[in-house]
Design a binder for these strands. Structure first.
Lengths: 231, 231
DNA sequence: CGGAATCTTGACCCTAATCAACGCGGGTGG
DNA sequence: CCACCCGCGTTGATTAGGGTCAAGATTCCG
């Protein structure tokens, strides 16, 4: 995908309709496409917050607490928009898991929208609210105790978010067990053991390193302890 | 504090300068003051996101995963602004820890700002970014392992955020050990033991249930494991 | 086909949860 | 003003979940 296609994908799938052409053009002018290979880390001016749109592929967002202490905050897939804050206490980074195409924009590009049109700013604000929701959900998952609950949650999350051909087909997890562990606040061995347990329980099926099929999402849901009594 | 004073405190301490009078008046018209006693839960229309400004007192923000499973996401004090999302997967609530005065506003009040002035929307967006930062920080703390690190982090956080007369004076923790435990993903006994350990190490001093003085914040900082090698 | 990285499995240990008893503090009523 | 009482906090003993260490087994790659 080249820049025009990538930007068009972003504009049509993500941006709200009814933007003035001027606003879209302005944004297009500021946006910057980037092709990433697995393991590549996105270089951002860390004095400024950014939005990153993932056109294809997958990426992880991590925070570096100290020199070599990484905490994975989230995984993202094609179609997602990620909010990366300016560096303050922590250093955030986006790392590709696959071959990945991204569109990088300064959040300021959204703020500087022409005064007669707040729509872009409004979009940016909403996007941040969504990021906040995801982050709080992550905090809830990490705050809850059992390893089993965390892994079950992770599997269901991936099962619904990793793009795939059709609803029955298995998915390819683009991240390693180590990365899963880091994102859940567990160790790689514990993750592996939980995978094994879910296999024994007949809830999932794996093949090779990354092939995954959820056989009983109801059962997994029960393992997350989230029997949320929706109002 | 009555409504006018509360709103004025919010407008002068929080809102950006250079707002048009019309925008401020409009907001003032939408805002709603509330007096809360310890333990009171704020009733919000949960179909809509809100901002809550704390004029005085202290409050906790928690998410209810299921019926009686609470996870405390954050504590807030006088002068803080809290973003409460609309209910989706979880039900969020604000509960007073002290006698607390709050100002409740729908976030929509900020979006509906007159078109010629995006400043309010801009403010709302920035506030959400700050909330996102805090939430990610919480996720990092919960994701890291040791109980000691978490409690040290909590103590330093409170030490700098709980309002007090002067820099040397002790603070009164408005929350119970149980609430501390819940916010850190620990048990009440573990929190108590860590407090004891820090006392033995001469890092803190406590009196009664809630009196706290940090004697060696450098030492505590070392216990958090956050020797962030700032660039 | 070989080698290296990743994943799985096992044994052991340690941290923090659990269970339980006790003590302190703050509030109430006599 | 004192005595009592209940809730909260502290402390101790035990246990279990998951971390750590170590040894194989896969898988993926050249």
């Amino acid at each position: 995908m080249n820049f025009p296609d990538l930007f068009d994908a972003f504009a049509s799938r993500i941006l709200p309709p009814h933007l003035t052409d001027a606003a879209v053009l302005r944004l297009r002018h500021e946006a910057c496409a980037e092709d990433m290979a697995p393991g590549d880390r996105l270089q951002l001016k860390d004095s400024e917050p950014h939005f990153v749109f993932i056109g294809s592929g997958a990426a992880k967002v991590s925070a570096y607490v100290s020199h070599e202490r990484e905490q994975i905050l989230a995984f993202h897939f094609a179609g997602d928009v990620i909010h990366i804050p300016a560096r303050d206490r922590y250093n955030f980074s986006v790392t590709a898991l696959n071959a990945t195409e991204v569109l990088v924009m300064r959040t300021a590009s959204f703020h500087e929208a022409t005064p007669e049109c707040c729509a872009l700013l409004r979009y940016a604000s909403d996007e941040t609210v969504r990021a906040l929701g995801r982050s709080r959900e992550a905090a809830i998952v990490l705050g809850r105790k059992s390893a089993q609950e965390r892994v079950a949650f992770f599997l269901l999350d991936m099962w619904e978010r990793v793009p795939r051909e059709d609803a029955d087909s298995a998915i390819d997890l683009p991240m390693s067990r180590g990365e899963i562990a880091e994102s859940l606040g567990l160790t790689i061995e514990t993750v592996s053991r939980q995978f094994g347990e879910f296999k024994d329980m007949g809830l999932i099926e794996t093949r090779g390193r990354s092939h995954l099929r959820v056989l009983d999402s109801e059962g997994l849901l029960r393992c997350t302890g989230q029997l949320a009594v929706a109002a």
